[in-house]
Design a protein around this nucleic acid. Structure first.
Length: 356
RNA sequence: CGGGAUGUGGCGCAGUUGGUAGCGCGCACGGCUGGGGGCCGUGAGGUCGCAAGUUCAAGUCUUGUCAUCCCGACCA
């Protein structure tokens, strides 16, 4: 989805030089209190990346100089490090976490807002594809000190959430408790009477950065008249590892995890029960599935059927395919959906067709 | 940092008024069983987080220390 809105994938270093952070006045521990910092053997100080506005502006400055280069977006999926006072709730808040962060560069506010809304729509496609779209709300939140605008959080409703938000169900929009004042409600056109209090997990966040970072690091563009202009930046984050935690929390049942099909580590859990004939058929089916590009976890362990079934459910692979002596006699295999446990008997050909 | 709790075989835990450790799972071997974590037998595996101290004797008591977890501040 990031590629679809024009994002170009990059990978930045986690180790970061001090000087660029001093230019934006974010190096000092008094300004940013959750830095992990380290030193080279020669004493040079380094920061361990907690976000990447500074290094991306620094890197982009070698490629952007004209209005013709804009708009321009880059993103990465990378581990971030933040020295939180307290890590908690497993994947929901760790000091090291995986994040997708994208940065957009635009010539003016109009272009920026167009890009920004494009990314917001892409974010909802991401949440839809993960099966979270219905319970995830665009939520107004504090935009930070350097922008008059609100930022947008993407809050997935869950009792385990750390955030309190107020949802306007008819508008499919919410506002974070942190900024819920009469003044802000009026500004946003929200009516207190239509708001319902909910708990949410912040699974994404998008910010209007104005030209704070580009100006501070000296990144400008030349317009049609050759005049130097400020570049308007946006930044967009999705907490990838946190999202995994949310998905585990929301979809799991009493038997274990239930992974949505498009992010499951495997699509098929192949259970083999029985003797030589079953081994032969299962081996063949495994090869055929792999050849079709279908990821299969083959449970060829010498354990009881019940254990294989229980493990397949615990791990949460979307589809379980069972090959057994009994089924072979009928010329079929059994397909079981993890989501609802529904079972279907199919021939190998029908199975391959269905999963293709 | 404030408050609370926990560290004992690989994992999960028990261990009484101090007397040198036990259970379940897992593992190894043998056998039975064979579509929902099945059963029987035999066996391997532990400086009790670390360091001092009290004591004839410390998993157990005292002090210190380290680590982890939970609540709070903070935070994607």
């Amino acid at each position: 989805e990031m590629n679809a809105v024009g994002g170009q994938e990059v990978m930045m270093t986690a180790l970061q030089p001090k000087d660029i952070w001093e230019k934006t006045d974010r190096w000092d521990d008094k300004k940013v209190d959750n830095w992990f910092k380290t030193k080279l053997i020669n004493g040079t100080e380094l920061g361990v990346g907690l976000t990447h506005e500074e290094p991306i502006v620094d890197a982009v400055s070698k490629y952007v100089s004209s209005y013709k280069d804009l708009p321009f977006s880059v993103y990465q999926i990378q581990s971030k490090f933040r020295n939180e006072l307290r890590a908690k709730s497993g994947l929901l808040r760790g000091r090291e976490f995986l994040m997708k962060d994208m940065y957009s560069f635009c010539r003016d506010q109009d272009q920026h807002l167009e890009e920004y809304e494009k990314v917001v729509r892409a974010y909802f496609r991401v949440y839809d594809r993960l099966g979270l779209g219905d319970i995830t709300y665009r939520t107004y939140a504090d935009g930070g000190i350097f922008t008059p605008r609100f930022s947008d959080e993407f809050q997935t409703l869950s009792e385990v959430g750390e955030d309190t938000i107020y949802v306007d169900e008819s508008k499919r929009i919410a506002i974070n408790e942190e900024i819920m004042t009469d003044e802000n409600l009026e500004k946003l056109g929200l009516d207190r009477n239509n708001l319902v209090e909910k708990k949410g997990v912040e699974v994404g966040n998008t910010f209007h950065l104005e030209s704070k970072y580009t100006d501070a690091l000296g990144l400008y563009y030349a317009d049609e008249k050759g005049e130097k202009q400020s570049i308007i930046m946006g930044c967009y984050g999705i907490g990838v590892s946190r999202l995994m935690g949310v998905i585990a929390e929301i979809f799991a049942d009493d038997k274990g995890l239930v992974w949505p099909e498009n992010i499951a580590p495997y699509r098929v859990y192949l259970v083999r029960i029985g003797g030589e004939e079953a081994v032969k058929i299962a081996d063949k089916l495994y090869d055929e599935l792999i050849t079709k590009g279908i990821e299969v976890l083959y449970d060829d362990r010498d354990v009881h059927a019940g254990q294989k079934f229980a493990d397949s459910e615990l791990i949460g692979i979307p589809w379980r395919v069972t090959v057994s002596d009994r089924l072979i006699n009928d010329g079929v295999v059994e397909l079981t959906a993890r989501k609802d446990g529904q079972k279907t008997l199919l021939t190998a050909e029908q199975l391959l067709a269905k999963l293709s």
